[in-house]
């Protein structure tokens, strides 16, 4: 990983302060026990669902305070990133069984159908309205239909993050193995 000219044993010159001295990223490869960090894995297991729930909160609160589909999707995505860093692609694959591109496509379809749906009721494209839903137990709840757009964004962004993990994470890792480089 480090460059070939090795001068780390010398007293470090000033401008070399940022020279990497060890592999600074934990590999995601689960099959190499030497590189696993139990602490990180345990933390992740505990944090992961919490963060996902928080992301749902952000999604729903978006209309009233900071939040919304973007931020929520990104938070959820970061949860998966954490999971990947701790457990590697195999672990991630165990959680997410759908293809990432399909997730992205689904998100986009949800958003586009939200845009087009009002036409069926004779309203302009992308118009929104307030839906009153009678929920059991909770009673009457009001829902702005634009939340569906937010849901689409949320799903799509999770898909994007997963796809990035697949490509930049797993893909590059595999390339490195192919090339015989030490991860």
């Amino acid at each position: 990983m480090t460059t070939s000219r090795d001068e780390s044993h010398d007293p470090m010159p000033f401008e070399e302060w940022d020279r990497p001295r060890e592999a600074w990223l934990l590999s995601g490869d689960c099959r190499r026990p030497g590189q696993r960090s139990l602490l990180l894995e345990m933390t992740t297991r505990a944090v992961f669902p919490t963060v996902l729930v928080f992301s749902l909160y952000l999604l729903l609160v978006g209309h009233y305070g900071p939040g919304g589909g973007f931020s929520a999707g990104l938070v959820a995505g970061l949860a998966f990133v954490l999971r990947y860093i701790a457990g590697g692609s195999d672990d991630l694959g165990a959680v997410v069984r759908v293809r990432a591109p399909a997730v992205i496509g689904t998100g986009l379809v949800i958003a586009l159908l939200t845009a087009l749906a009002p036409v069926a009721w004779g309203a302009p494209v992308l118009s929104t309205t307030k839906l009153a839903v009678a929920l059991p137990l909770l009673g009457r709840a009001e829902l702005q239909t634009s939340v569906f757009l937010d849901v689409g964004v949320y799903v799509l962004i999770i898909g994007v993050v997963l796809d990035l993990l697949r490509a930049l994470g797993t893909g590059i890792e595999r390339d490195m193995r192919d090339a015989g480089e030490d991860a």
Binding site: A102, G105, L116
Partner: peptide, 14 residues
């Protein structure tokens, strides 16, 4: 919107 929808469909049905 139609081409975007088409793009999404071609990914789902890739």
């Amino acid at each position: 919107l139609l081409p975007m929808l088409g793009a999404a469909v071609t990914v789902l049905g890739s």
